[in-house]
Design a protein around this nucleic acid. Structure first.
Lengths: 375, 375
DNA sequence: TTGAAAGCGCTAACAT
DNA sequence: ATGTTAGCGCTTTCAA
């Protein structure tokens, strides 16, 4: 690896002149000098040593990205968008860390970022406790958090980029209700997180509007302690068993996310129930895998690419201008109809009441307004 | 962020003493001194600046990881294992790069690694041309490549870690044959890669041993030009259409990988064919998703965790000892039986001939020896 | 228009 | 047992 010294010598100029061309100050020299320097750079295949540059300026061209597990398809998808955006639009590389939802790992990752001189980080975490985030910000990290709305007291210095979870679940529940379902459930892993509570609120709101009464319920299961990538799917699978065994079971299920929906579908299959004939399932996320499973999963899709672009853009600009105040960025989801939702089965508990019918029309209109897609 | 200077002052010692404790040379000082320094480090929450350390020593605690796309579940899975192993067992962080199978992106990633001072990289690529790898190695990168056997002429300075692809496909084909299938196909995306050719060889070998003659064939389709994460699945889906339309179609398909198998299953569903009643499908990889789809996918599982651990161990040790010569590391796959393979349908072309039966027993015995698992 | 020089935070050889 | 010091490769005043 050649150094700036080599280039200077090769071009017969001083290192400051080389540094000037490296840093876009070519106007400070004669055309001829510029040419000589550029030729030398090319001939020696010189690339400035970033460690040295960083030591001097305190700036890096790296971003940290913290995910629970990159093996989870949803995080893989988001990570891909983030890395591509960081690289192609901002020339930044991405340092990846799996945290398995473990606080020590998250803290350790922040420490390492700081030690490496990396000051921008995008965090995908569902840990309720934000303490260590605040502390990391206090130590100089510029942080953008995914899918956890700002806490009301705000002013944390953390950007929050998320989807409108309330709307996502409302859309999903409305879709079920629009198909005549009067007994619906929201299936999730237990544990409070902002995104989950909002989805539950949205789900309940739709149910209430449709006058479902206690036809709507929330069911959950704890995840097994150690983080597994199939965590969500496992919960869904177990939940499907619970549902299948229930005496008066719901006919439509909103899953907190696609992975859990996949688990539900597998669990129903285990239990001998056919989706969507016996029970309808709708997910939230919009993974490409959703179109591959049998039956293709109807889901509420998140605008992942835009969210990723926003997250990257936020870290980069706040890194450049520390004055910038952290904000909240909310994105709208979109229904993707496929084949896992069918009209509620006729029968004692099935849909078909006049009110349900009327409401279903209203819902459909609203869905259309929110923007549906077919894939 | 405090510096080594601050610590030295705080402890009332020189910076070399602090540096000594930082670098495990505590034996060079009095116990008392050590204590004072350690206390100062703790009180100031001091973490050595890695950029400075790197500038001085030329060493980094970062590894590069290049994948076609982290959104592909298989790469996500491997990346997770690599990152965890690098971090927990060797204290190294991972710099991630998506390359979308694009040579320029790969080269750009190598350039950046070198500029960052990162000298170890794990490469997952299926680009046939190895030229730019060699060149990167020439410029100082210590490289470990995943799933591309060393080229015969060897001596490239690149470690090769891969699964026994021949055996994987042989295992898969034998499994089908053991279930009485006499008309089988190997489904893949077109394009020559070492791993694909070996899988094809293994598949053909099993077919030949069973005397299938032209009952065995290889079918492929080109992927669409731009890299998509559903690339493989799309190919599988299209291929399933081709197969369904074929006049004398195979009854069992070996997919080049699980993603393609998922696509096949979706495609057969589109075509009104039921897996495994009408056609059996077996994948290669062993993604956790395989147990979720309907029907659960029988597959040949790669020992991903071990392979990842080996890759990381190799980069790290060759980084530490440049004398170490690059090698080849081959891992054995394992059959995971689930429900996507059933006995060949009876009928004019189905199995059931005496020879098929006898052979199927022989195969079963061989499979058992190779080690089967049920999940 | 160009160059000299200080110094970012650290390591390690070399004093003391 | 502890301290002094010369850089690692770069950016950036400041001077010429």
């Amino acid at each position: 690896m050649s150094t700036i010294q080599d280039v200077a010598r090769h071009a017969g100029v001083s290192i400051s002149t080389v540094s000037n061309v490296l840093n876009g100050r070519a106007d400070r020299m004669r055309r001829q000098t510029l040419d000589r320097v550029e030729a030398a750079i090319r001939e020696l295949a010189f690339t400035p040593n970033r460690a040295a540059r960083q030591l001097k300026t305190g700036r890096t061209s790296m971003l940290g990205l913290l995910v629970p597990s990159i093996a989870n398809p949803m995080y893989g998808f988001i990570a891909r968008e983030i890395e591509t955006s960081a690289q192609e639009r901002h020339g930044h590389r991405v340092l990846l860390g799996n945290t398995y939802r473990n606080r020590e790992k998250e803290t350790g990752f922040f420490d390492d970022l700081l030690a490496q001189g990396v000051r921008g980080v995008i965090v995908i975490s569902s840990l309720v406790d934000e303490q260590h985030f605040e502390s990391a910000v206090g130590r100089g990290l510029v942080m953008v958090s995914y899918d956890r709305r700002a806490t009301p007291d705000a002013g944390s210095g953390i950007d929050h980029v998320s989807v409108d979870n309330f709307e996502a679940a409302r859309l999903a529940a409305s879709h079920l209700i629009g198909h005549g379902h009067r007994r619906i459930a929201f299936a999730t892993a237990s544990g409070e997180t902002t995104s989950r509570s909002e989805k539950i609120r949205g789900f309940l709101e739709a149910a209430q509007r449709a006058g479902l009464g206690d036809g709507a319920c929330v069911i959950d299961r704890r995840t097994v302690s150690e983080y597994g990538d199939s965590e969500m799917a496992d919960v869904g699978r177990a939940l499907a068993g619970d549902i299948a065994r229930a005496p008066h079971r719901p006919t439509g299920i909103v899953a907190v996310n696609d992975m859990l929906a996949f688990g539900l579908m597998a669990g129903f299959r285990d239990a001998g129930l056919v989706v969507p004939r016996d029970v309808s399932v709708i997910g939230i996320d919009g993974l490409f895998l959703a179109s591959l499973v049998t039956p293709p999963l109807t889901t509420v899709r998140l605008p992942v690419a835009q969210m990723a672009a926003t997250m990257v853009e936020r870290v980069i600009s706040r890194l450049a201008d520390p004055q910038l105040v952290a904000g909240e960025f909310l994105f709208q989801p979109e229904l993707v109809e496929r084949a896992s939702v069918a009209p509620a089965p006729a029968g004692p508990t099935g849909g078909g009441r006049g009110t349900a019918r009327r409401r279903s029309i209203g819902k459909a209109a609203r869905d259309r307004k929110a923007g549906k897609t077919r894939t």
